[in-house]
């Protein structure tokens, strides 16, 4: 990419003025900082999962689900299965590859295992979206607010109407 043919793309000289006195980029704080997030986008009534799964036998066999969750067909990380992410011992939580348990409010740490660069940019506010105050408290949309974890490609949506053409004006 990056054969930007638009007229006048060059280096930004204005900004370099501002940078003269600023120190190097701050180091990323990878330690477990929690981020304010809106509630996870569960379907109505599905959470807590334990309302059904408590006491229900765990079935680790990859298969097509027929009694429940029929809408979940994995199209993500080829060869993966439910328990790469969900915790078989407590369905109300998620489980990382290293055995660490995380809540659904922290599902970004689950995604970050394999999408590390994106997680870093998400924390910086670049990937995904923050809402709230630009100079105060911010909420981070979870990865799963935009990516259905079982089939994460961002889905196409209907655009809002185009502007009226001058010729459409009576």
């Amino acid at each position: 990419m990056r054969t930007l043919g638009i007229s006048g793309i060059g280096l930004f000289c204005f900004f370099s003025l501002l940078l003269v006195s600023s120190p190097a980029v701050p180091i990323e704080h990878e330690v477990h900082k929690k981020f304010l997030v809106p509630p996870p986008p569960f379907s109505e009534g599905i959470f807590p999962c334990s309302q059904c799964h408590q006491g229900m036998p765990v079935n680790r066999t990859p298969r097509k689900l027929e009694m429940m969750h029929q809408d979940i067909v994995l199209n993500h990380m080829p060869g993966g299965w439910c328990f790469d992410c969900h915790n078989p011992d407590n369905r109300d939580t998620l489980r990382l590859a290293n055995g660490k348990i995380v809540t659904f409010e922290e599902s970004y740490n689950l995604c970050g295992q394999c999408h590390g660069t994106i997680l870093r940019e998400w924390k910086a506010g670049l990937h995904g979206k923050r809402t709230g105050m630009w100079n105060g408290e911010k909420q981070y949309l979870l990865c799963v607010h935009c990516h259905w974890p079982h089939d994460p490609v961002f889905k196409a949506i209907t655009p809002m109407p185009p502007p009226v053409r001058p010729s459409d004006i009576k």
């Binding site: 930007l4 006048g8 793309i9 930004f12 900004f15 600023s22 940019e121 910086a124 670049l126 923050r130």
Partner: peptide, 19 residues
């Protein structure tokens, strides 16, 4: 230096229109 706009400018190749 900690704003998201600074992050973008420092980590991505940014450009402006009709520079």
């Amino acid at each position: 230096p900690n704003s998201e706009i600074r992050y973008a400018i420092e980590h991505k190749r940014v450009f402006r229109l009709k520079e």
